[in-house]
Design a protein around this nucleic acid. Structure first.
Length: 286
DNA sequence: CGTGGGCCTGTCTA
DNA sequence: ATAGACAGGCCCA
């Protein structure tokens, strides 16, 4: 497929938003919502197998007006540098179910560890699919995780997250959410629905909203974003709030809400894009 | 409303 | 090599 929009596959898949892509011989492989695929990029040529143009365009958000989005969030010199560092980085539209479980697992873990957990989960509970000579694994269906026992989940290095994964899987299996319905809800409504699941607080709900429910104004505040705000934007916060946060190890829910609201107001309706550029920039510098 | 402490375990750094 | 810090936090008291 010939690209006529800015896009960078490597930046997009390596910026920390997705965890289940494997690189083999220059191709990137994954199974998205049950569809195995491989893809690679050479300049403006995007080459892939297993899925069609429509799938790729939707998953990678190629119809989103990236130039306009970047322009919208380009509010100061700092984010400007982040934007210039990663031309073509896009937010993908993840499968909501996979995204939900992935970010439950992501709490208090490093990215390599998260990738390991999700790989083990998929190998143990997901369906194996041989594709283009590679053994790939679909992300486990809700019933698989709902019926898994805690020991088997813990064997995937989930630790205390095992009971959250199991509990959330059970609620999903019982039909307590309709992800398509959540996509139609406003951002705050979707987030409110998500935090009802065990293991999902504000931060995880923001990630799921942003990465799979198309809420581009969602602004997840993790330890990195918190550091970025404190190091580069503290003077834009109320002084008492900045002082308080600087003196504490962890954010209270109220403080989280205030940083989250600040991000949405400052960066606007594509605040989530700003967050991802800043996050990746901060993590890769040095 | 805010706060403190506990929690599983893989990675990375000193 | 081995310890210790730190991980894209959440839950409960």
């Amino acid at each position: 497929m010939r690209l006529d929009v800015p896009f960078d596959l490597d930046f997009t898949l390596c910026c920390g938003q997705v965890f289940r892509w494997r690189k083999i011989d220059g191709w990137r492989y994954s199974v998205i919502a049950g569809n195995p695929l491989k893809i690679r990029q050479c300049g403006a040529e995007l080459e892939f197998k297993g899925v069609d143009d429509k799938f790729v365009t939707h998953y990678f958000g190629l119809n989103d007006d990236l130039a306009q989005i970047r322009c919208c969030v380009d509010r100061d010199a700092y984010i400007h540098k982040a934007l210039r560092s990663f031309e073509g980085l896009r937010l993908v539209r993840q499968d909501p179910w996979e995204c939900l479980i992935s970010y439950i697992c992501a709490t208090f873990k490093s990215i390599p560890a998260i990738e390991q957990m999700l790989l083990k989960l998929s190998v143990k509970f997901g369906e194996k699919q041989v594709f283009e000579g590679q053994d790939l694994y679909a992300f486990p269906a809700p019933e698989k995780l709902a019926h898994a026992n805690l020991k088997d989940l813990r064997d995937c290095s989930l630790g205390y997250r095992a009971k959250y994964v199991q509990g959330t899987a059970r609620q999903v299996l019982e039909g307590q959410v309709d992800f398509e319905c959540l996509k139609k809800l406003p951002y705050l409504g979707a987030r409110t629905a998500l935090v009802e699941f065990p293991g999902i607080g504000l931060k995880v709900a923001d990630c799921v909203s942003l990465f799979s429910l198309e809420k581009m104004e969602a602004f997840p505040v993790d330890v990195w974003v918190r550091r970025i705000i404190m190091n580069h934007y503290a003077n834009l916060l109320p002084e008492d709030l900045a002082k308080k946060i600087a003196s504490q190890a962890t954010l209270s829910n109220g403080q989280y809400e205030r940083l989250n609201a600040w991000g949405r107001e400052y960066f606007g309706r594509y605040a989530g894009y700003a967050q991802e550029y800043l996050f990746h920039f901060e993590r890769t510098r040095r």
